[in-house]
Design a protein around this nucleic acid. Structure first.
Lengths: 349, 349
DNA sequence: CTGAAAGCGCTAACAT
DNA sequence: ATGTTAGCGCTTTCAG
């Protein structure tokens, strides 16, 4: 292991001059620079990041924290897209990417408190997570890829506009004649679940349709419908003719459940999913889905964090990015087969 | 930021004693330990990893290097499975995971040379990669998830037994009456391509069938068949009745190409893919595929690396792990529709 | 059982 | 344009 010291000795210059050359700082004579670089090359010098980091107080690494297990993360293509976006943004700034799966109360604040990374991108952190207060108090640069509901003003975040997404989904279904629509939101503690609920109720209200509490369910992410939500819906005395699931995986599981119960999709029940990952396209039938741009989400979050790292804006107000979403219509939605008094008479507002 | 120094002062003990307590070293009186821990808690002490790493020479982080772009990696589910396995193994040893996408000559040797990580797991590195020699020379702990053909003895590796996998695929096809089988291997520079070729030729030989060079093609990974291999095959004067593609994505693209050319799968052409990721199950028709266990591959590689980190076995011979694979038969393969003289008369060896 | 001193390899003032 | 001097916060000898 060659050190700056040794390069200094070999080149005949001081350690500081060598440091300047290695770090491409100005104010070094051209021939000095050459001589130093030559010595460095000869000795096969490599700067030691540990030392550099300790002395400078920076790590040139960013932590990505996901509040799920590695398996869950990698089973759902959306995270891959997000990670891909993050990774691309970081690479452009030569920042390293430290991945931390924080399921089961795994700590993540130590990443910044122990100076392992310069900042964090946090994904799917539920409201009320006990580590959040300490994190915010530490003033470490952080960007959340979803809103943390209990600290709305205090964090930078980037999120997709699920309220609008569900609104588009509901409108599409109502256009097809559906008036009884089930909504499977995610966990209550995630902001996205509340956003979806808002989009659902507001749109039904706006279109003058009834809102039934028994048609709104909360649940897990990605769960393969082990919770029986689909069965619950279809066993209601007045079951929905369309169901909006929380994500593609849930929708696929829901369709399997519906099929096993004897329903045909979309003839008997229309199904809409959210996220529109690759899974939506490969499903049978292909899913009508609310598309969100995972790559952009990741890139936007990373760029926001990079900005924080470059310009530590003491107390500037948090920045938020709301990304647009778009309903992609495929084969899992169709006209409502049940004649309904509202059918055909609905007026668009 | 609280330092050991400050905890020492607050607790009235020396910095070394505090260090011992923090690191759970023996030879500290119980009440001393209590007093120190108490002070540390009061001051909200967090060890600084940079300093600890610099002093100890270890980083407690492992680098994962993939010779593909972030997009490519995350588009293909196999890598997710591998990463998931790696991540799980590392987490058990409280090692951090640094991800590096090394497409386009991105450097990765600096990760170890500059002491950012303690060791590397390398994926999909082609033979002849110019960074390999320096890496091996540095003696840094490394595990490859595929064999690097030009340094067979010098590296630890874990790989799936593609030779056997392709053998199983060929046998299955021959059982179905196919005697003209196309093979699309990966890039020539990857060991897995050679392994597949070996499995192909050896099995045909063993079964007494002809080996035609024009039925073996090399190509990229995951390419969506922009290279026209499928078209090339079908335009041969004696085209194959079955094709083994390099991976699930290629097989899916191949099926699309075959379909657009008017062939029906599997009635006209049988198709087999390798990897058996989720994509294989969702494809239409579902793919007959050579399954490899990505999670296990990742976990095995990480565990091998961890062993190297814990027991730096100077010059012990490299360890290799060959993981079993298994052909999963689904709907993309069927009986050969062409009458052939060999049909039905073949004897299993 | 506990402590003092000497670095790890680099950066960051402040000289010159 | 170049060099000197302190540290960064911790671990590691080696002494008590």
């Amino acid at each position: 292991m060659t050190t700056l010291q040794e390069v200094a000795k070999a080149s005949g210059f001081s350690i500081k001059t060598v440091s300047r050359v290695i770090n491409n700082e100005p104010n070094v004579a051209a021939h000095t620079r050459e001589a130093v670089l030559d010595a460095a090359r000869r000795l096969n010098y490599q700067p030691n990041f540990q030392a550099r980091n300790l002395a400078s107080g920076r790590t040139n690494a960013v932590g990505v924290v996901i509040h799920l297990s590695a398996r869950e993360v990698f089973e759902y293509p959306l995270f891959n897209e997000i990670l891909s976006g993050i990774s691309e943004a970081l690479q452009a700034h030569r920042l390293d990417l430290l991945l931390r799966f924080a399921d089961n109360d795994v700590r993540y604040t130590d990443l910044v408190l122990q100076k392992r990374v310069d900042g964090l991108i946090l994904m799917s952190i539920p409201a009320g997570d006990p580590q959040i207060p300490a994190l915010l108090e530490s003033k470490a640069p952080c960007v959340f890829t979803c809103r943390v509901t209990d600290n709305p003003q205090q964090t930078h975040w980037v999120d997709s506009d699920f309220t609008d997404g569900i609104a588009q989904a509901v409108e599409h279904l109502v256009d097809l004649g559906h008036t009884t629509i089930g909504l499977v939101a995610g966990p209550r503690a995630l902001a996205l679940s509340q956003l979806k609920r808002d989009g659902y109720t507001r749109t039904l209200e706006r279109l003058g349709l009834d809102i039934r509490d028994d048609l709104i369910r909360y649940g897990d992410l990605f769960t393969h419908d082990g919770d029986g939500t689909t069965r619950y819906f279809m066993n209601l005395s007045n079951p929905p003719t369309a169901i909006i699931y929380n994500d593609d995986l849930q929708a696929i599981a829901g369709i399997q459940e519906l099929t096993s119960m004897g329903y045909t999709i979309p003839d008997d029940v229309s199904v809409i999913s959210v996220d529109d990952t690759r899974l939506a396209r490969y499903a049978t039938p292909p899913l009508t889905s609310v598309h969100q741009d995972g790559f952009l989400k990741g890139k936007t979050a990373a760029d926001a964090l990079i900005r924080l790292l470059l310009h530590p804006d003491g107390n500037a107000p948090p920045v938020s990015h709301q990304l647009p979403v778009k309903l992609i219509v495929r084969g899992s939605t169709g006209p409502c087969s049940q004649t309904s008094s509202r059918n055909g008479s609905r007026q668009r507002t």
